[in-house]
C-alpha cells in the first residue's frame, strides 16, 4: 500500500509542475491566483501522502488542516483586495 501512496504523491507533484506554468505565464493576476489556489489543494494531499510515507499521519494531519485554512483565507483576502482596487 505504501508504494501506491508514493505513486499518488509523485503524480500530484507532476500535476503541480504543470499548474506552475499558469502561475508563471498566466496573463493577469487573476489567472495566477486561481492557479495558486489549485496548487494549495494539491499540496494538502501531498502532505497527507508524506505522512503515510513517514508513518506519522497524526502529525501531518494537523499541518494539512492549517494549510487548507490558510489557503482559504488567502484566497478570500486576495479577492477582497482586487475587488477594492479597481
Amino acid at each position: 500500500m505504501n508504494e501506491f501512496f508514493v505513486a499518488v504523491g509523485l503524480g500530484l507533484c507532476l500535476l503541480v509542475f504543470l499548474v506552475l506554468y499558469r502561475v508563471i505565464f498566466g496573463p493577469g493576476v487573476f489567472n495566477r491566483i486561481a492557479a495558486i489556489s489549485a496548487v494549495g489543494t494539491k499540496t494538502l494531499i501531498i502532505l497527507l501522502v508524506l505522512g503515510y510515507v513517514y508513518n506519522r499521519v497524526d502529525m501531518f494531519i494537523d499541518i494539512s488542516m492549517v494549510y487548507a485554512l490558510l489557503n482559504f483565507i488567502g484566497c478570500i483576502a486576495a479577492a477582497k483586495y482586487l475587488e477594492m482596487e479597481r
Partner: peptide, 12 residues
C-alpha cells in the same frame, strides 16, 4: 473561494 475570486474578476 472560487466564488469570491470570480466575483472580484467581474467587478474588476
Amino acid at each position: 473561494a472560487t466564488h469570491a475570486i470570480s466575483r472580484a474578476g467581474i467587478r474588476h
